[in-house]
Design a protein around this nucleic acid. Sequence first.
DNA 1: GATTCGTGGCT
DNA 2: TAGCCAAGAAT
Length: 366
Amino acid sequence: MERAAPRSATLDAPLFRRRLITWYRSHARELPWRNVSDPYRTWLSEVMLQQTRVAAVVTHYNGFLRRFPTILALALAPEAEVLAMWSGLGYYRRARMLHKAAQFLTQERGGVLPSTAAELRTLPGIGEYTSAAIASIAFGESIAVVDGNVERVLLRLTGRPEQKDAAGRAFVQKQASALVPNRRKGDKTNAAGDHNQAMMELGATICLPHAPLCLQCPVYGMCKTRGEHLTLPRSAQLSRPAAYLLSLRKRGTLTEVLLQLRADDISLMPGMYELPPLPQDAVQGREPLLRLRHAITNTNYYVQVYAASGPQDRGLRRAVPASKSDLHWVLTHRLGSLPLTGLARKALQRLDVMKVDLPKLPAHQP
DNA sequence: GATTCGTGGCT
DNA sequence: TAGCCAAGAAT
């Protein structure tokens, strides 16, 4: 039986940590959830960041906190309002679980987040990654985080091909754990939290999935592959057309828009509002008001929005297959407080029916 | 262990 | 245009 010889000496962990943290201190992006002392804010940012790009989180984070500044405020809010503030971020189960966890903490733990990864892990919506991230970043626990960035960095560093099974995950976990610094008594800085964020920052800004910026990498000299990286094949994308109705009516000086409420018992975005979907054959030969692309998981929807034709909506309005009890006229100025699907929100904003709320820009550093 | 759950920016 | 995939968790 052939036995694989050790391919390389193990990484020089202290050297790696020094190079990484030195780089991080001068290159870290300034993000709204960096350098905060409230663990609730760290929690919120980590949940929002699950499978979601930083830029998308930046547009939602401040607004959500303004509306729900504390765990208590979040716990007391109706779920629909929590979903409304989440609208556009996707994976709405995250918002429901965050809300449930806030209610649990308020009722059972005096509204205080636990400070260890093991305890955090028991809360709804907090898994392996998020528990380690909050524990290290907010509380200084010495525990490694493994997200997509960390996995990619470590696979490239060690030259190991991507492997989705338990052995592959165990390998990455072991590598990550070997690199996290220990907690030191009396240390004012947060070594583990900063190290973890630095690993992710490296993956997000230098060790990119395609065309990594190896010449700017602080640990280039310790890297086995320097960019080459075997990955598994991804599932194919689909393309599908989709059509929706825009129907407006005046109420004095105000305007109402017709929305459809998605059923509570469907798996995809239950209990959320969208523009009424139209059958494809109802819109043949018509000219849409708006065309846009909208991706849901592995499907690209080529969406067209059509205006109801006559003043009484006699045209397309009747082609809406939904039952009347699912259709609701909503004042346009109330749209911001409704749980809209991301697509509905995007379409209503582009059609100038709904106001675009600009994210607060971070202070500019000259 | 495999599936399901959204979205948008980049190329 | 169409493919890629990101600071994952729950079931």
